[in-house]
Amino acid sequence: MFKQLSEGQADNVEIILNGQSVLVSRGISVAAAALSHQQRFTRTTPVSDSKRAPFCMMGVCYDCLMVIDGKANQQACATYVQQGMRVDNQQGVGPAMENG
């Protein structure tokens, strides 16, 4: 759906996106990383199991919730990629209660 423009020197970090190792630009949001790596959707809703993806990219819609480093309900548009970060699509409410 989206691609990263090549703008000279690449400065990348490696993240694990839905189990796949991918290189993404340092400093971009997790949502940006997911969208530019062919993730058509990033979660399913707890109400009807419908697919959703980032919508507003500015932290107000809460549709970009993903599981980041095992933590559910993270706003992917307001979380920034780090070397080695594990990012997974969230199913419903996700593992909100499994990391107590």
Partner: peptide, 25 residues
């Protein structure tokens, strides 16, 4: 409007400004 692939224009702009990411298709 809730389907993945429908986004707000501001979201497109933020992707471009902050990450250099633009639609590829």
């Amino acid at each position: 409007w809730t389907l993945p692939g429908v986004m707000q224009a501001g979201a497109g702009q933020i992707l471009y400004k902050s990450a250099g990411i633009v639609p590829d298709n």
